[in-house]
């Protein structure tokens, strides 16, 4: 569809606009006077006059042209598009945050739930099958942070007590999902339930600590931060199931990790929380 805004001239390849001859002539004259301007280097007055003439010609060229204000091809509007929130294909990016809820295990990491969570950013593709059913995939990057409680029961990752301590796992993942819609609707996402499985490649893991100390020879406190990367007690891959319950741009999601994230060879090391619940915002 060609939609022409007000006061904007447009030309088309299949239309020979009247005034082309005049336009060409004026353009030639413009070039001539422009060349003359460059040639007249010894008299600034002459140059000013030439520029004035050039300006006049350019203005004249514009005001004498026909102005196509609107040009519509209605047949093009009848083509049913394939891309849209409730059309054949739809894709969008989203951001999400899920808080870790629990690991359903007695041998769990001693983590602070409120400060632990997973932030994700991803691309979601949806293929409509019927008005009530769709399939799709989701490619995402995520960062999971586990804040460790500092108390006497602490054994993981070490017994050492710090001012602050957290573990971070960075992942690249793919999710395959099936979507069930609940409402009859037009070209909107509507209300839906997504159920799917995911697999993540944990490409990085880090252990951060933060402590304060006051050296014996100084009255000023020092902050000591440590970072340990590529933690050998975490698995490189994880998989699980994910569900989202949403309405248009917003969704509440829950992820449950089926696989262990802590390597079984590290006997006594606890498992990290498996369930996370949070919100997603679709950007489209």
């Amino acid at each position: 569809m060609k939609s022409i805004k007000r006061n904007r001239a447009t030309d088309y390849t299949n239309l020979n606009r009247a005034g082309t001859f005049l336009g060409k002539l004026l353009l030639k004259l413009n070039k001539l006077f422009f060349s003359a301007t460059i040639c007249v280097i010894c008299g600034s007055l002459c140059r000013v006059k030439s520029f004035q003439l050039l300006f006049f010609l350019v203005v004249a060229l514009n005001v004498t042209a026909q102005n196509v204000l609107m040009s519509e091809y209605p047949n093009e509007d009848t083509i049913i598009p394939k891309y849209g929130p409730n059309l054949k294909k739809f894709y969008f990016v989203y951001i999400g945050y899920e808080a870790f809820a629990d690991d359903f295990s007695d041998n769990s990491a001693n983590i602070r739930n409120r400060a632990s969570g997973r932030t994700s950013f991803g691309f979601k593709f949806k293929r409509r099958i019927t008005n009530f059913w769709a399939l799709g995939y989701d490619i995402n990057m995520s960062s999971s942070t586990f804040s460790i409680k500092q108390n006497s029961q602490k054994t993981f990752p070490s017994v050492a007590i710090h001012k602050k301590e957290r573990l971070m796992i960075g992942g690249l993942g793919i999710q395959i999902f099936t979507r069930f819609n609940f409402d009859r609707r037009g070209n909107t996402i509507g209300k839906y339930l997504d159920i799917g499985g995911y697999i993540n490649w944990n490409y990085t893991s880090q252990h951060f600590t933060k402590d304060f100390t006051t050296p014996a020879d100084s009255s000023n406190a020092l902050t000591i931060k440590t970072t340990e990367s590529q933690l050998n007690y975490f698995e490189n891959y994880e998989y699980g199931v994910k569900a989202s319950l949403g309405s248009n741009h917003f969704a509440i999601s829950a992820t449950y990790r089926i696989s262990d994230i802590t390597k079984s060879s590290f006997v006594g090391f606890p498992e990290m929380p498996r369930l996370s619940v949070g919100i997603n915002l679709a950007l489209y």
Partner: peptide, 23 residues
């Protein structure tokens, strides 16, 4: 009876538009 195309042109000179017959 369907419109294939329509335009609005602001006219400043006598020769308004030239169309190809093949259209």
């Amino acid at each position: 009876g369907h419109l294939k195309k329509y335009e609005v042109i602001e006219v400043y000179q006598n020769d308004v538009i030239t169309l190809n017959i093949s259209e």
